[in-house]
Design a binder for these strands. Structure first.
Lengths: 131, 131
DNA sequence: ATATATGAGACTTATATTGTCCCATAAAGA
DNA sequence: TCTTTATGGGACAATATAAGTCTCATATAT
């Protein structure tokens, strides 16, 4: 199993393509074809990215999608979070989940450092780095 | 979704418990009860850990499981790999998978550094750190 | 012998992920 | 204004993965 899921990978391709075409909307059909993403799925993924404030759409002929902000202001973490939620080592590290092993769990405390490293790295990388 | 899956978490609990009881086998029944792991599942998980060379078993009454090597020689990475395979950011980073986007994939090369950090961290942590 | 353990594989169930379909809405252009 | 080309969005279907259970076999202490 991959940490970055297939749909998230698709999303990166789509966002990277939009970054290359800043200023002009690109239709889902073209985005999908050029990046080997099933068309109907690409539509859904872009809608999800839209709700996350990463892309926006222009309707009608000559419409399509474009980035909503500068590629330098979109981190890997933002794209990942929009598509699949935050990357976390385990449930105990990042949510209000109350673990039945609380207090005698051997591992969670030993994972928090790695969790921080992952977060830092994903927040640090920007879509502009892909250009 | 968690990077470390539930069964892997269970495995850590079981292995940590065995580390506390070095020298004397502990039965699956006790391991399962004390660590909130379903009994039949615990049996399967321990068998998997056995195949990976992390634990070994003693059959018959007074039998059970014990660590096959020193807790200091068992890394988090080994336990994780035994249970769910290697932790990887995406398919392209750690396998012979031939990606259809090869050559124009925007992201894989930007993830390899983080992959290395994760690998280092998980290899560095040992079961003995849990005691 | 018997009771208590593990070995191993088939099987079922649960859950998550991926992908498709359909109908509605918006806008450009003839 | 009608038609075509777009996206909005929800329901649904298909697939894959993970978790958990069951059954029977084998080993060993007493």
């Amino acid at each position: 199993m991959d940490i970055i899921r297939r749909n998230t990978d698709y999303a990166f391709r789509l966002v990277a393509e939009l970054a290359k075409n800043q200023g002009q909307p690109v239709s889902v059909r073209k985005l999908a074809e050029d990046n080997l993403v099933p068309y109907e799925l690409a539509r859904k993924l872009l809608q999800t990215l839209g709700r996350a404030g990463i892309v926006c759409s222009v309707k009608g002929p000559k419409g399509g999608y474009e980035l909503k902000k500068d590629a330098g202001d979109i981190s890997f973490a933002q794209v990942i979070e929009a598509m699949q939620g935050r990357v976390r080592l385990n449930q105990c590290l990042l949510s209000s989940f109350v673990c039945p092993m609380k207090g005698k769990c051997p591992i969670t405390s030993h994972l928090s450092e790695l969790q921080k490293v992952i977060d830092f790295h994903l927040n640090d990388k920007k879509i502009s780095d892909l250009l």
